[in-house]
């Protein structure tokens, strides 16, 4: 019933979600979250919702990652100062 492309995509989404929670390095967690968003947009595309896929790829994989990385950089800078 499930297409194997969808199966592999969903499997990697679950693995990326596990890594993004369990990993102690924040930057690695953010990259895992970006991979999750990108694969989620692929999954939206496979489910025939291309407009949601574009929104997810632009906001989830692009802008959210940039904002998280900037926040992590600022926090590390502040920790080093103390």
């Amino acid at each position: 019933m499930l297409n194997w492309v969808e199966f592999v995509t969903l499997l990697i989404i679950v693995v990326a979600a596990y890594f993004s929670i369990r990993v102690s390095n924040l930057l690695f967690a953010v990259v895992a979250l970006a991979a999750l968003s990108l694969l989620l947009s692929l999954e939206f595309y496979l489910l025939k919702a291309p407009d949601v896929a574009i929104a997810e790829a632009g906001i989830g994989a692009g802008l959210t990652t940039a904002i998280y990385v900037l926040a992590i950089y600022q926090i590390e800078k502040r920790d080093k100062k103390k």
Binding site: P50, D51, I54, A55, G62, L63, A66
Partner: peptide, 17 residues
């Protein structure tokens, strides 16, 4: 085509980022 104001705006904003 698929998309609209929100989606295209997000793509333009990622280019500016």
């Amino acid at each position: 085509t698929p998309g609209g104001g929100f989606q295209g705006g997000a793509v333009v904003a990622s280019g500016f980022a």
